[in-house]
Nucleic acid binder design. Structure first.
Lengths: 231, 231
DNA sequence: AAATATATATGATATTTGTCAGCTTTTCAA
DNA sequence: TTGAAAAGCTGACAAATATCATATATATTT
């Protein structure tokens, strides 16, 4: 087994709360973890599932969404390299409130909850680190609430593109690295797919966005930002 | 000083994360805390303030809201007896992302952050308890996101009344104990005040709600629930 | 009690957004 | 490669919601 498959040596850990674990704790995690490969479109877990562990994203992106009573999915968060999914459910000892589906091919480390829960009780540094991450998620969620209820669909779509660029980057040609379908973008923004398509078309016509195949790229970031702010 | 003014004896503590504190920790908290009285409409802290402590609600209700770029307030949470406000900012070492304003006359205990931060580093039981509360807030925030983006204003207002009844109760005459202005209800739901008033009027005409002065009461809870679910 | 301010109410209208239908393009597997 | 399925696109229309104007009721101050 290569040394990079040991959590102690995993660079990704630096980005999440596992960095606050001791050598011994990491050894336990590493010994009990299972590496999983998930293909684009496959589910990692579903709303209502009892999670017996958490998933640490090694590669790829997952959408965390919740089905509303009218049958539409609302994407609440996009989790990428370094993020830990399922923590909330394990901590609350509740079943998952969100579904996780792979947006592209993914590599995950599945860590059984026992070792996590054990550290939560014994290592305050780790617990505090998890708490800090959750505090950050909560602030982001509050921001999303304000945006969805106070901004127009056009503003939110403009904002979504800025978000995709700053969080997932773009290639040398200026296309967003994270490729989402129009439906997924609509589900992030909380609007109908057709409305989303219409506005993206409008942005293309106005020279704010460009597209090539299913890839989308930002041409005029400043104008998009202004739009998102309501100018 | 009456013994009920000592945190060790405070019943309210049973509802929040302070219950996981040791006797000694509570003694420290009690010695450093300051009781504050805030009148209806007064601000406790504002978005952007640096918080040097947290506020434990002893009595009354506070609205936690965020100003959007279009100048409207979005109420993200209503905090009542037992809840601790400002935790998130203290944990993240960031300035407040929300404003807190008293909805009615309030009594608060202000606890300097040092004693909280100290316990967060030393007492994993306490940290875990705070984490559990925050995990719960996060789940609630996710639910709000889905509701706001997928339900109609009418559904959300129906839901808001169910929420107000289950969380704050009603008097013997069947009026909600927590009295909110139509504007506040609109800001909880994320809609224009006029739209909110219109729908409340409609609900009154249909015999779902009743009003007397500024008090509002639920007449037909079942129909309200059905409405909220989209029937 | 009168005067003023604030909250609630309602109509008319404009804007935004969703829905349905049909069409074109792309993707993917047989 | 070719044909089915999925994704993207666009128009027409309907529904939901916001905005503006104005009226009335309620609360607050003088």
């Amino acid at each position: 087994m290569g040394s990079e498959s040991r959590c102690e040596n995993c660079i990704i850990r630096q980005f999440n709360s596992l960095r606050a674990m001791s050598k011994e704790e990491l050894k336990k995690v590493s010994d009990s973890k299972v590496v999983k490969k998930v293909k684009k479109g496959e589910a990692i877990f579903e709303e209502g599932d009892k999670l017996n562990g958490v998933f640490c994203v090694r590669d790829g992106v997952s959408k965390l969404s919740k089905l509303s009573s009218n049958g539409k999915d609302q994407i609440v968060k996009l989790a990428s390299k370094g993020e830990v999914m399922g923590q909330r459910s394990v901590i609350s000892e509740e079943s998952a409130n969100l579904s996780a589906v792979a947006v592209n091919d993914m590599q995950l480390c599945y860590i059984p909850k026992e070792v996590i829960v054990d550290s939560l009780h014994k290592n305050p540094d780790f617990t505090l680190e998890v708490l800090r991450h959750m505090a950050n998620d909560l602030r982001e969620a509050d921001d999303v609430i304000v945006n969805i209820s106070q901004k127009t669909v056009k503003q939110r779509i403009a904002e979504a593109f800025i978000y995709l660029k700053t969080n997932f980057g773009e290639d040398k040609e200026g296309y967003l690295l994270l490729v989402l379908s129009r439906e997924d973008i609509a589900n992030v923004v909380g609007t109908a797919t057709e409305s989303c398509i219409r506005i993206i078309s409008e942005f293309k016509k106005k020279g704010l966005l460009k597209s090539s195949g299913k890839r989308l790229g930002i041409i005029d970031e400043k104008k998009l930002r202004d739009l998102a702010e309501g100018f």
